[in-house]
Write a protein that binds this DNA or RNA. Sequence first.
DNA 1: ATGAAATGTTGCAGAATCTGAAAAATCATC
DNA 2: GATGATTTTTCAGATTCTGCAACATTTCAT
Lengths: 204, 204
Amino acid sequence: MTSVESAYELGRRDRKKLETRAALEHAALTLVAERGLAGVTVEDIATAVDLSSRTFFNYFPSKEDALVGGSPASAAELRERLEAVPAEVPVLEALRLMSRAEAEHVQRRREQWLLRLKVFEQNPSLLPRLVASGTETELAVSAAVARRSGVELGTSGYPELVTAVALTAFRAAMMRWSAAGGHPALADLVDEAFSQIAAGLPDP
Amino acid sequence: MTSVESAYELGRRDRKKLETRAALEHAALTLVAERGLAGVTVEDIATAVDLSSRTFFNYFPSKEDALVGGSPASAAELRERLEAVPAEVPVLEALRLMSRAEAEHVQRRREQWLLRLKVFEQNPSLLPRLVASGTETELAVSAAVARRSGVELGTSGYPELVTAVALTAFRAAMMRWSAAGGHPALADLVDEAFSQIAAGLPDP
DNA sequence: ATGAAATGTTGCAGAATCTGAAAAATCATC
DNA sequence: GATGATTTTTCAGATTCTGCAACATTTCAT
């Protein structure tokens, strides 16, 4: 819970910064959910939070980035979660545990994530960005996987492959979760996906 | 080979269109490889092919889309390749065969794809787009998978998962191929990735 | 061959995105 | 409170992208 604890130690300035960022994210999501991606300008979003549009760009490089928001977790957090799993645990299982933890984190921000995923469904051009946020983390995670499995990055391709597949499974579970209105427990869907993968994805 | 055969039947107009499109793609790739993404404007690209920038936008909605080019294959082509595989073949194996065919197609355009992948490595902000181009196809393929495996889309999540994992494996193989300078046969790398997945991604 | 229809290309006007630089407001600290 | 650091704002400007109308080329029927 490093991130939460350290939040207590922030001064007014940084607290406001986080607030502003969250407010912009929220405004962007709700506005785009209402009017669609093309129906909302950065100006609109900024005005909704009573800020100048230039300030918006101090927080996000583009309109789309505000919708993606902070990635589900920072690369560092995921890596920590992975490294917290004992070394005897097989790699895929370790990635499952990491993903479960992440799933619970997402579920804690249930409403926000369902809104986000809904926006993404309605504006498919955004989907790439969602994957993009994973791109940075994918590197960090695959590096950790390489260390754990004693394989060098860029040789066998194993760390890259397991990592990519694991994150893909996580994303698939999120989509399914969203499509089901967020009713099932996301962690269960994650487990299910990993089970199928561990079994080699046999015909159903 | 439907696409090739039908290409013979194109009139001058459509032939020119394809040429123009390819020329724009090529110019975009080489220019960005030289100067970086930010160092190239749409104006530059259009001028390099002696077209107005307005015409550029008749072909591609954005600079980035010109770099991604036509996806490795159209969704329809992939679906056809998948449907060409006998129904008795297990789903994952069918997807492997489909990916192999695609790999050979990419290898036939070796230089172009290596350049593209190099540009993507140098401009990580583009990576999402590469995956994006897969997004459309992912839908078509998962629909075909659903039909083949007799499962409805959006219920078990199985078609979506296998499809996503298969395309991920393909992408991982392409990255590895690119990192290795395009020397190994892409089809072999694809096979290897699918083997590991079929085995449940055990520790190496 | 010729003319009408369809389609491709271009220039222009204009909205929206995004960046740099400097002034103005706000916050931290002493 | 005064001082220094950070954030927000204003402003100018480059670039991206879209609609529209004019013009050029290709296609097709005759």
